[in-house]
Design a protein around this nucleic acid. Sequence first.
DNA 1: ATTCTTAATTGACTATACCAATTTAGCAAG
DNA 2: CTTGCTAAATTGGTATAGTCAATTAAGAAT
Lengths: 248, 248
Amino acid sequence: MADQRLYHKVANQILELIDSGVFPPGSRLPGERDLAEKFGVSRVSVREAEIALQAQGRLEIKVGSGAYVLDGSDMPLNGLPKVGPFELTEARALFEAESAALAAPIITDETIAELENYIAIMSGKVESELSPDEADAAFHNTIARSTNNHAIMFVIDSMWKMRTEAAQLQRVYKNVCDKDSSHREDEHQAILNALINRDSSAARRAMRAHFTRMIEALLEASEEEAYQEVKRKASESRSRFLLTKQLS
Amino acid sequence: MADQRLYHKVANQILELIDSGVFPPGSRLPGERDLAEKFGVSRVSVREAEIALQAQGRLEIKVGSGAYVLDGSDMPLNGLPKVGPFELTEARALFEAESAALAAPIITDETIAELENYIAIMSGKVESELSPDEADAAFHNTIARSTNNHAIMFVIDSMWKMRTEAAQLQRVYKNVCDKDSSHREDEHQAILNALINRDSSAARRAMRAHFTRMIEALLEASEEEAYQEVKRKASESRSRFLLTKQLS
DNA sequence: ATTCTTAATTGACTATACCAATTTAGCAAG
DNA sequence: CTTGCTAAATTGGTATAGTCAATTAAGAAT
């Protein structure tokens, strides 16, 4: 532990100050010169520490202004895998179902009201600064959050970010996402109803059904438009997913 | 684009050299002094560039040796949340169970042989360059890999990395992990048997049981040693986990 | 109160120097 | 010829000190 570089130690000290609330997200860090004196190190080490933190998406350094603490929500999260739409949807079907099942028994009325709001936004019945897509993200993330389990929140959030990247790259996925707005509302409502009833098992089923239909839609889309890659992956996995579906 | 920092430009130049194959993964970069001269910048700028790339997991800098290009496979993945041992185990119970259930119908005999080998390594019956802990990681990662789903592989791998970080920080977790070696072998064998039978449902159950016992062990440990934080989180979530367990 | 100018602050970059870890070269012993 | 050790060269790590440019804050002029 003693063989780590100085700038690494400094970075950790800064991180502690951030996490302990001394420097909340959005706030500005003291200047490099101040921090150098405070930590008893050279300015170079502070600089290197801040550069490393910036590379990790924890800070944003503005020339002539200062280093600002970034909110954890917009952390880019390095190293997400490139993942095809089918396998991603499959993974979400499994994991988000468990997320919903775990959330069901302990979800609060406030959170349920929040979810209702997101559904309204998605259907366009309520105007908001959130886009329908962002409301969709918020819907799933909020369920994950109500599990009170940070690992689950991380996983659900990561998969949404993969979806965003995948949607940028692949037309099929985007088309399907756009086209399924009609089904989406009903399915989200079904999930919500299960949560309102605090029915863990129903929540799992509803969430699985939500993504299962998305997979079907992807399959159709991949047949219409000859996206070989998607088609191959889809047919290869179809049987086993439909198999495991029955086992829940 | 012209207002980016120098070290950022240098980092991009280095990245280009890496991606173009001039410096393949595993190779060593020229020294900071050489690169500084080559790029026509100061050594500090090269240093800052390499530190940023290291923070992004593209390089590994070894003191007195040099900066080495990292393979994409062992990128450390930044931005992992700090997660308590209980919630992490809970998440793994849910997600790894689904991973195993999905893998069961399509796992190959080769992969099963691989898993057998990892179990043998963990029990010490076979000597290997892998530590028991690394074999444990390989066991779970291999199951995830056999799902053929990159999103699932990512999630399982991420959670193992969280575990590693958590174990460094929290004694309880580490103690439990060390003590459960005895149960571990039987449970892993049970999982493997389910996979051999291609029994999706049994694989799910076995995997859940594996982590459920770990949670019980954590609960005991947190009572013995008065780790308030763990204790609180555990008791708060215990009921709902045991609840959802029955619903599978 | 508003705008403009100016001074102070802050990050960006360079140059130089020294230290410690690592590697390499060379030499000695077997 | 191989092995093992030592010393020198290489390499990253840190510090100090200074210059420059972007930004901000303070003050003056309107």
